[in-house]
Design a protein around this nucleic acid. Structure first.
Lengths: 231, 231, 231, 231
DNA sequence: GATGAATGAGGATTCATTCAT
DNA sequence: TATGAATGAATCCTCATTCAT
C-alpha cells in the first residue's frame, strides 16, 4: 500500500520492511505451538493437521497456507525445539560448568511441560520421515559434540572423571537424558521434581572424579541443591 | 486350546505337540513377527494391518481374525518383547553379576536387529494407546525393580559403587539403555558393535566403586572385553 | 471353502479356477463403464473418483479397492477402449477392405454414445499423465500401422490411390478420425448420422484412385450406401 | 478502455499508445500468455490460477483482479487464440490460394510452440465449460465457413477437386488439422518439421483435382517444397 | 478357519474465491 | 491497483473394521 498515507513514520515503515512477511513469522510460531501441544497430548501418530488447526483456532487450509507440508510443519517444529536446546547449552555461562549445564537442562525440560513429550515423539519418528532424520542427526550431533567439549574441559580442570573419554561420557549423559525424556511423559508421576533433582544429582555424582567409595549417597542429598563434593 | 475337540486323533495331536499351543498360537506368533518387522522398517505411525498381512503373506481378514483389534496385536507384540526382555534379565545366572547383565543385554539387543527399533517405537506410542500404557508401565517397573535388586546386591558385595542408591542407579542405567535404543535405529552407523561395547564398558566403569581418579580411560580399552578394574 | 461340498462338478470348479479373482473382473468392468460415463458427461478434468463411485452405486472406497489409483482406473479404461478399437480393426474381415474398415469404424463409434467423448478426453490428457502417455502412444502406433498396412494392400490391389504413401494416408485418415472424435461431443448436432455417413463417403472418395475430375460429388450421394465408384 | 479518465496527460497517453488499451490490457495479455504457457506445459486439468500467477510473477490476487473468474481467464485465452487463427486465415492474401492457406496454417502452428497444445486442451474442455462451448462453436464455425468458401472458390477455378462438396472438404481438412493438433503435443517426436510438411503436401494432393492414378507419391517428394502437380 | 469385498471416516493436500488493507 | 491471508469445499487415498461366504 505505497499510496495510502497511514501515518506511519519512515522509521516505522523501515521496521515493517525488516520483517517482510508481516505477521507470517508470528503466525507460524503460533501454529508451531499448537502443533507441539497436539503432539504432546495425542502423540505423533495421532496428530493431524486438522487437530492442529482446531487447537490453533483456524481452518486446515490456514495451516497448509503457512506450512506447505505436514513435513515442513514438523521440521520447523523440530528446528525450533533444537534452537531452544542449543540456546540452553550455549547460554553464555561458564563453558566448563557441567553442574550448571545439568541445572539448565533441568530448567528447560521442566519449564515447558510440552518440551519432553514433543521431543521424544519427534525423535521417535525422525527415523521414518525422509529429510527429517537428517535434520535431527545434524543438530543432535552438534549438541553431543558441544557436550563432549564441555566434559573434556571439565576433565582438564579436574572436575570431571578422566577414566572415561569425554565423548563416551557425553553419549552416556545424552542417552540418559533421552531415556528420561522418553519415559517421562509415559509415567509422569514417577518424575516428581524431587526425583528429577535426585537423578540429576546422581548423574553429577556419576561423572565426578574420585567418587564411588563414599558411604553417603548423593541421592540422599536430593533437593539440597548442589552437593559440595560434586563438580 | 485344550477345549476344542476337533476330532484329531491322538497321533495327530502328538505331531502337533512341538507347537506351543496349537496352530492358533503359532499363527499369532507368525503375525507378531510380521508386525515387528513392519514396525521396525516403517515406523509405528506408518504400520498398518494391511502391511502386516502382506508381510505375513496372508489377507487382512486373517490378521483381524487372530487379533480382534490393532491394539490387541500391538499389545501382544509388546508382551512378547517384554517376555524376551525379562527372560534375559532372569536367565538363571548369578543374580549379582552386573557385568553379566550388561553383556546379556548387549547380546539380546544386537542379536535381533528389530529388537531395538520395535521397542523404541512401542515405548514412544505407549503413552497414547489406551490400555497399552498400563501394560508397559507394569512390566517396565518390574524390570527396573529387578535391576535395582541386582544393583543393591552388587553394592552389598562391593562390586557396585555405594554412593548412589541402587534405585537411582537402576533408573540411570535403564534410561541409558532407553536412550541408546531410541537413537540406535535413527543413526545406526554410529552404533557399531565396537562402540556399543565401549559404551557398555564405560557404563560398567561408571557404576563401579572407587573409580574416577585414574588417568587411563575405560573407553580406550573398548573391545578388549572386560577391563580388569571393573566388576 | 475346499471342504464344503457345494454340489459343483469338477468342471464347474475348474471354470471358477479360471477366473481366480471371482467377480473381480466383472466389478472392474462395471466401474470402468461408470468411469467412462462420468468422463463423457463431465469431462476428464471434472471426473472424480467420488462421481464414478456415485454413478456405479458404491462408495469411494470400493473404487479404490478395485483400482489402486485414479491413474490405474484411467489406464485400464484406456486399455479397454483400445481393445475395442483393435478388435474392430482386426475383426477377421477382408484385410484389404478399406471401405469395410470405415464402415466398422462408423459402427463402433456411433454404437456406443460414450466412445467418442471418452476417447477424446483420454487422448487430450494422455500427454500430462505420466505412464499413461506411453500406453496410448504404443497402442495408437499399433493402430496406425495396421491401418497403413491395410492401405498399402489396397494400393497393391488398385483400390487405393497410389500417389500418396500408405503411411501418410494412414496418418491423414486417423487424424481425420481424431478430429471428428474431438469435435463430435462438442457440437453433436452437427454430427447427424447422415452427415457422418457423408463424411465417411467423402473420405472414401478422397483416398480412392483416379478421382477428382468427376462432376457429381461423393457427398451428394450421402446416405445411399457405398457409391459404386469408390473402392 | 477509452472511458476511464485517469488523469493522464496527453503526452503520457501518447507514450502509452503502443499498448493497445492501456495498462490493463497489457497486464491481461501478460497473464494470458502465462496461462497459455501453464496449460501447454501442465495440461488443462492441472492448470491452476496459482500456477498462472506464479509463472506471471505476481500474486494470486492479481489474477483474480484482472479476471473475475477462472472461466473468464480461459475464455479470454480462447478468444485471443481464435483471433490469431482468424487473422491467419484472412491475412490479405489471395482468397483462393488453398496452398497458401495450408502454408500459413503450418507457419502459425509451428511458429508458436504453445499454440497447438493450448488449442487442443482448450478444445478438449470446451464441451464441459459452460459458456465456453458456445464461444468455441461460434468461432470454429466461422473458421470452417471461411475455409469452405475458399475451397469453393478453388473448385470454381479448377484448383480444387470438385467431386466432393466444399463444405465436406472443409470439414475434412479442419478435422485433419484438429487431429494433428491433438496428437502433436502428445508425441512431438513424430511431428518433425519434415513430416509436417509431408503431411501438408499430402493434404494438398488429396484435395487437388484429377489426382490418384499417378505412380509417384506426393509424400515421396516431401521436403522439396510444393510438388508441381499440386495446386 | 479364513477370505476378501465393502465400508466410511479420516488422512494430507490443492484450489478458486473472498476480502480487508 | 494490488496484495496475501484465509476460507472451505473438494481432491485422492489409506485405513481399521465388519461381514457374508
Amino acid at each position: 500500500m505505497p499510496l495510502s498515507g497511514d501515518g506511519a513514520t519512515e522509521q516505522e515503515r523501515a521496521v515493517r520492511r525488516g520483517r517482510p512477511a508481516g505477521d507470517r513469522a508470528a503466525k507460524r510460531a503460533e501454529l508451531l505451538k499448537a502443533a507441539a501441544s497436539v503432539i504432546a497430548r495425542e502423540g505423533y501418530a495421532n496428530a493431524s493437521l486438522r487437530k492442529v488447526a482446531q487447537r490453533a483456532g483456524c481452518t486446515t487450509g490456514a495451516v497448509t497456507y503457512y506450512f506447505a507440508n505436514k513435513q515442513e510443519l514438523v521440521t520447523a517444529l523440530a528446528e525450533s525445539r533444537f534452537d531452544a536446546y542449543e540456546a540452553m547449552l550455549t547460554a553464555g555461562h561458564d563453558r566448563t560448568d557441567v553442574r550448571g549445564l545439568l541445572e539448565r537442562w533441568l530448567k528447560l525440560v521442566t519449564g515447558d511441560a510440552d518440551f519432553w513429550p514433543v521431543m521424544s515423539q519427534l525423535l521417535a519418528h525422525a527415523r521414518y520421515e525422509p529429510g527429517f532424520a537428517a535434520l535431527i542427526e545434524r543438530r543432535y550431533a552438534r549438541y553431543r559434540e558441544a557436550q563432549a567439549e564441555l566434559l573434556a574441559a571439565g576433565q582438564a580442570q579436574g572436575t570431571v572423571r578422566s577414566d572415561i573419554p569425554a565423548d563416551l561420557l557425553a553419549d552416556q549423559l545424552s542417552a540418559m537424558g533421552d531415556g528420561w525424556m522418553m519415559m517421562h511423559p509415559f509415567e509422569p508421576e514417577r518424575f516428581t521434581p524431587e526425583r528429577v533433582r535426585a537423578l540429576i544429582d546422581a548423574a553429577a555424582t556419576l561423572i565426578a572424579p574420585g567418587s564411588g567409595a563414599g558411604e553417603s549417597g548423593a541421592g540422599a542429598g536430593a533437593g539440597d541443591g548442589a552437593p559440595p563434593e560434586v563438580c
